[in-house]
Design a binder for these strands. Structure first.
Lengths: 155, 155
DNA sequence: TAGACGTAGTTGACATGTCATCGTCCTGTC
DNA sequence: GACAGGACGATGACATGTCAACTACGTCTA
């Protein structure tokens, strides 16, 4: 029972709230744009980008999950939805009877090739264009440092 | 048809990815902590904080939605769930037959009073403690500037 | 005061995530 | 080999959000 809570100072409060708000607003806006312009969710986009980064657009289930830092269950559900929409297909794994590959389809490639330029443009318009290079460096440093701490804690 | 896409430079790419990653990881961690330590979702927390900030812990539906920047539909669904769990109650609005108030219950106050110190502590441990005051100022400035731009665009 | 129009809130269908649990297959050890 | 335990992935129940109607009430104007 520690009664002395170190509440946030006004500056901390302001910064934290602004930061949270930025995430919600910017993330929401980008997600909506991606959806309406390209018919993809952010999750779809992430999967497709990862698959185009990998030989033959083909990757094992858990490798994909690890690359995106997703839970395997999320991966499983999401791939099922993407299969239904024809963006990827499953492929049996010969070496390991339990395993499966996820493979990007032609439709998936078309989708990502159409979406990526628009998405990059949106990230510029809504975010990068309003941040100086120095600020961006700071942001990157802070982000990497904090994520590294989170990783430490988790272990 | 503009063929010349301005892709992200390596620094931009790194910064943007780190930033997105930070949001996912930090947000996820805080949400999970709040849930397991206090049995509240981030959304519950936001509603309860807002209601304790308002006279009598009582606010009109849409005012609440505007304060949190939520859609009314989201508000409606979420309040229904919170009512079911006894954190808030609905109250008829006499002046306006369409309207309704949301009122925090004693259980709601207990929940938020138990959760808030832990949550603040977590925000410190996981984030603020790893950011210098100067970095925090930069972060706040950037966040506010970008959100302001988003607001402009929306109008 | 009637009708048009706007406002407050609800609802249902659906997309997305999490958690816990399950079935199946692989692997190391005896 | 047999079996214990781990790894791979699927599944069902549930929480959360969004979008698009829809209901019901208020308000303004002719």
């Amino acid at each position: 029972m520690d009664e002395t809570v170190r509440w946030l100072t006004p500056e901390e409060q302001r910064a934290w709230r602004a930061f949270v708000r930025l995430q919600e607003r910017l993330g929401g806006r980008l997600a909506r744009m991606l959806q309406t312009e390209s018919g993809l969710s952010v999750a779809d986009f992430a999967v497709l980008v990862q698959l185009t980064d990998v030989p033959e657009g083909r990757q094992r289930f858990l490798d994909l999950a690890r690359a995106l830092e997703w839970e395997k269950s999320r991966m499983s559900h999401h791939i099922a939805r993407m299969v239904k929409r024809g963006l990827v297909v499953r492929d049996e794994c010969v070496e390991d009877g339990r395993g499966a590959f996820v493979v990007i389809t032609d439709a998936g490639r078309e989708a990502i090739e159409g979406a990526a330029p628009l998405h990059v443009e949106a990230v510029r318009d809504l975010f990068l264009d309003h941040v100086t290079p120095a600020e961006l460096r700071t942001l990157a440093q802070v982000s990497e440092r904090v994520v590294a701490k989170l990783d430490e804690d988790a272990s």
